[in-house]
Design a binder for these strands. Structure first.
Lengths: 246, 246
DNA sequence: GCAAAGAAAATGTCAGACAATTAAATGTAT
DNA sequence: ATACATTTAATTGTCTGACATTTTCTTTGC
C-alpha cells in the first residue's frame, strides 16, 4: 500500500483514499483480506483509531466488510446491485430534495429514462414481470387505498417496467430516477378520477408489453408523462403560492 | 435524536443510521450543526470514539462535513451534483468490473440511456455544448493520439451529448453509465480506420444537434452503437479465448 | 481604534486497556 | 477413531483519558 506525504488533510481520509484507490484500480481483488488494524496502523505509522476511522469510511461505501474474531478482519467487498441500489436511491432522493429540483425537471428525466427501457422491455418482458405489473395495477384500483400506498405501487409498477428490459445496468441506473420521484409524487392528492386515468394508462402499457408492441407502449407512456406533469403542475403551483405567502 | 435498542449491530453503524435517517427525512436541514462529538457521546451513551466512527461513515457519504476549531463541528452537507457524480462513477465502474458485466450489456445500457437524451439534446443544445463536441471530434482525428486518450475524448463527447439535454437529473444519472464504460472501451485497440468511422459518426451527431434534427441524431447514434458493439465483440472474443487458455 | 496575546471550544490524533467474538487447536470421554 | 467440550489466539468493538491543532471570540496593551 502507498504512503501518505505530509499534507495536512485528515489522516483517516488519506488512508481511506489509499485503500480505495487500491480497490478501484484492481490492485486488491474481491474477498481479499486487508491487513489487520494493528498492521495497517504500523504500515501507515498512525494509531489504530485513525485506521479504524478510515475503515469505517470504506465500509460506509460498501467497499469493505469486517468480521470479528480470529481469522476475521476487513475484506474487499463484492459490490452487489442490491447494495448499490440503496445508495443510489438515497443519494438521488437527497439530491432532489436538497437542490430544489422542480417537479418538471425530475419528471422529464424519469420518463426520458423509462422510454429508453420500454422498447427493450416490450421485446424481452418475462411472464414474471407482467404478473408484477398486473398485480400493481390491481392494487391501484382498490378503493380506500391511501395516496401514499398508491404512490408506492406506482413506483413498483415503473420499476417492473424498467426491470423488464432485463439489463441489470439499466435497472441500477434507473432505480434512483424512479424512486427519487416518490417524495415529489407523494405531495399529489390522487382523486378517484385521476387514479382511474393512471390505471387505464398502466393497463395500456402492460397490454402493449404483453403484445410485444413497443410503439403502443411508447405512446401510452408518453400520455402518462403528460398526465403526470399535469397533476404535478397543480401541486407545484399550490406549493409556490404557499412559499410566497409564508 | 432517536435512541438505539439493545440490538447487536455495531454501535457506530446504528448511530450513523439514526443521524442519516434524521437527515434524509428532513428532520435536520442543510447547514444545520450537529451536536458536538462529546454531546453526541452523552446522548447516545457511548464513547467519543464510537461517535467519531459514526460521523466518519456519514462524511464518507458526503452527508456531513466537519470543521475544526471553536464554533466548528459537523454540519449537514448540501449534496451537490459535482460530489454525487464522483461517487456515481466510482460505484458504476466497480459494479461493472466486479460483476463481470459483459461488454454487450454495458453497451446496450449506455446507448439506451443516451438515446433518451438525444431528442432533448437536439432541441436544447447550446452553442457551448456544440463547441465542446466539435473540439473533441477534432482531438479524435489527431494522428498519434493514444488509444487511452481517444477513449477519454470519446467519453467527453458522449457527456456533452448528455449534458446537452440541459437536465441536471439526467446528467447525474447518466454520468455513471457513460464513464463506467471507459475501462471496457480501453481494452479496444482503435485502428486508424475505426477511428475514422467513429469520428464520422460523431460528426453526424453533432451536425444533427446543430440542425435541431432529432431523427438524424438518433440514426447516427444507432449506427454508432452497432459499430461499438462490433468493435467490442472482437475484444471480448479475444479475452474469452485468453481466459479459456489461461 | 487597533493589533497582539490569550482563552475557549471543537475536532484530530494517540496510547493503552478491556470486552466480545470467532475459528482453530487441543484435550477428553465414549 | 470419532464426537464433543475446552482452551487458546487473533481480531474487531468499545471505553477512557490525554494531548495537539485549529479556529473564533475576548481581552489586554498601546
Amino acid at each position: 500500500m502507498k504512503i501518505d506525504p505530509d499534507n495536512k488533510a485528515d489522516l483517516s481520509a488519506q488512508i481511506a483514499k489509499a485503500i480505495r484507490d487500491a480497490i478501484v484500480s484492481g490492485d486488491m481483488i474481491v474477498d481479499q483480506r486487508l491487513p489487520s488494524e494493528a498492521e495497517l496502523a504500523d504500515q501507515f505509522a498512525v494509531s489504530r483509531s485513525t485506521v479504524r476511522e478510515a475503515l469505517k469510511r470504506l465500509a460506509a461505501q460498501s467497499l469493505i466488510r469486517t468480521q470479528r474474531g480470529a481469522f476475521g478482519g476487513a475484506f474487499v467487498n463484492r459490490l452487489s446491485y442490491e447494495e448499490a441500489y440503496g445508495d443510489q436511491i438515497t443519494t438521488a432522493t437527497l439530491l432532489l430534495s436538497m437542490n430544489a429540483i422542480s417537479f418538471d425537471v425530475a419528471c422529464e428525466a424519469r420518463y426520458a429514462l423509462e422510454r429508453a427501457c420500454t422498447t427493450l422491455s416490450a421485446e424481452r418482458r418475462t411472464a414474471d414481470i407482467l404478473a408484477t405489473m398486473r398485480a400493481e395495477i390491481h392494487r391501484q384500483g382498490q378503493p380506500g387505498l391511501s395516496d401514499e400506498s398508491f404512490c408506492a405501487s406506482d413506483v413498483a409498477f415503473h420499476r417492473a417496467l424498467v426491470d423488464g428490459a432485463g439489463n441489470p445496468v439499466l435497472s441500477y441506473q434507473l432505480a434512483g430516477a424512479v424512486e427519487a420521484m416518490q417524495p415529489l409524487m407523494n405531495m399529489i392528492t390522487f382523486t378517484a378520477r385521476s387514479r382511474e386515468a393512471i390505471v387505464g394508462l398502466h393497463t395500456r402499457i402492460a397490454d402493449a408489453l404483453e403484445a410485444h408492441a413497443p410503439e403502443a407502449a411508447q405512446e401510452a407512456l408518453h400520455e402518462l408523462e403528460a398526465y403526470t406533469l399535469h397533476l404535478g403542475q397543480d401541486v407545484m403551483a399550490a406549493r409556490n403560492k404557499d412559499r410566497a405567502a409564508g
